[in-house]
Nucleic acid binder design. Structure first.
Length: 405
DNA sequence: CACTGCGCACCTG
DNA sequence: CAGGTGCGCAGTG
């Protein structure tokens, strides 16, 4: 968790830079924070990273350079209409809140299809949402990994193996896009990367700038947009083509850092073994009983308390996470409320009722939906998302993907 | 010199 | 067309 003070400083700084029509890049942000608050740039960078991971800030690649967005503002702004158009079918009553989330990732989403290259990730772009929750997962991943500088590596990676290609496309959407040609990828790579090294962008100012404006953004944007509808399909195809991909498709959503997407699925996996999300990150084929324990534990809390109204929810005695998740689609609002009450969030459960979150909505929820859309405190919201919503979604998707593999 | 304000061009939906 | 973004330049302290 980032320090609240820093969160405020950084968000203020980003807002301030934006209002000045200056690019909120790392350098400016650090400088302004230091000037205003005396904070060391290193620390600012660190806090900024945290905010990015918390989706409070979106790291975007815009016009060939890295830029940062106040996720709260991005979400509410651009993506609203898209969500309205794309998501209405599925998000139901939670729309008001979840649409905002749209964030999320929206941003980063963009974060993908949502807005141009900026949101390449943004967190969270909402797809043309059929009812498939995969979208949201991918939205989220798009907000994080997809939006930063990892693009380049992803493109490179995409040239390697089919598995990698689809994998990375599921991640950033780049390589899958029909719009991207090798030449375009080359351009994108060339102009988008050197933001720091300052190469081609500065040699012939006008031309290169024009190139930077048109090509990288264009290609990325197109790719991101196109990928939106392809993501799910790609992920599923991937599951069929490349067994390990299924796993990575599920895990990538967790990868906020640039470059990691260029790792092989196995690398991704092994990387995760040290991560706190390890138990959540592994795919179904790796989810051994022991590894599942944590997931199941959460769900298992229900056993004693859940009433037997929902056919799927209650299976005499113990239920397994995947069973639960599979039946998630059948959960009513009351089931959801009961669940969160049972797992220790009775106060917050009320918010789920207020927002009329049923099982389907739950599957569509993104981090930002939980954090901001329910109007519950951040602490419990994070726990709810990380330990329950995400776990349930993942379990559900594992089931879902198994069907296709 | 750093910072600020803003005209303008560009892009997307 | 509306709205977001940010470059580049002029003004300010």
């Amino acid at each position: 968790m980032s320090e609240p003070r820093y969160r405020e400083w950084i968000l203020d700084t980003i807002d301030s830079l934006r209002s000045r029509k200056a690019r909120p890049d790392l350098e400016r942000i650090c400088r302004m924070v230091r000037r205003r608050h005396g904070s060391e740039p290193d620390r600012t960078c660190l806090e900024l990273e945290k905010l990015i991971q918390e989706h409070a800030v979106l790291k975007v690649n815009y016009k060939g350079s890295v830029s940062y967005r106040n996720a709260a503002k991005v979400q509410r702004g651009r993506r609203r209409s898209e969500q309205a158009a794309g998501k209405k079918s599925s998000s139901s009553s939670s729309s008001s809140s979840s649409s905002s989330s749209s964030s999320c990732s929206s941003a980063a989403c963009n974060v993908k299809r949502a807005s141009p290259a900026e949101l390449n990730n943004s967190d969270s772009a909402q797809g043309p949402a059929d009812d498939d929750p995969m979208e949201d997962m991918e939205d989220e991943l798009s907000t994080t990994a997809g939006m930063d500088s990892s693009m380049d590596e992803e493109e490179e990676a995409s040239l390697d193996a089919p598995c990698m290609q689809i994998q990375s496309s599921a991640d950033s959407g780049i390589s899958l896009s029909p719009v991207i040609t090798d030449a375009e990828a080359e351009v994108t790579r060339g102009s988008a990367t050197p933001s720091k090294s300052g190469s081609s962008c500065h040699s012939t100012p006008e031309k290169d700038r024009a190139a930077a404006r048109v090509s990288p953004e264009r290609t990325q944007t197109a790719a991101q947009r196109d990928i939106g509808s392809l993501e799910l399909e790609a992920a599923l195809q991937l599951a069929a083509i490349c067994p390990s991909a299924q796993r990575s498709a599920l895990t990538q959503e967790e990868e906020p850092r640039a470059g990691e997407s260029a790792l092989t699925p196995d690398q991704l996996l092994s990387d995760r073994t040290g991560s706190p999300h390890q138990d959540e990150a592994v795919g179904s084929d790796h989810l051994e009983e022991g590894e599942k324990r944590n997931n199941v534990d959460d769900v298992a809390h229900l056993q004693g308390t859940e009433t037997a109204k929902n056919g799927g929810m209650k299976k005499r005695g113990l239920f397994k996470a995947e069973e639960m998740a599979q039946d998630l689609l059948q959960w009513s609002v009351a089931d959801v409320v009961s669940y969160f009450s049972a797992v220790g969030f009775p106060e917050q459960a009320v918010a789920f009722r207020t927002q009329e979150i049923d099982g389907k909505s739950l599957l569509l929820m993104q981090r930002s939906d939980v954090l901001t859309g329910l109007s519950i405190r951040l602490g419990p919201a994070l726990k709810i998302y990380e330990h329950h919503v995400k776990v349930l979604q993942r379990s559900h998707f594992q089931e879902h993907c198994d069907v296709f593999s």
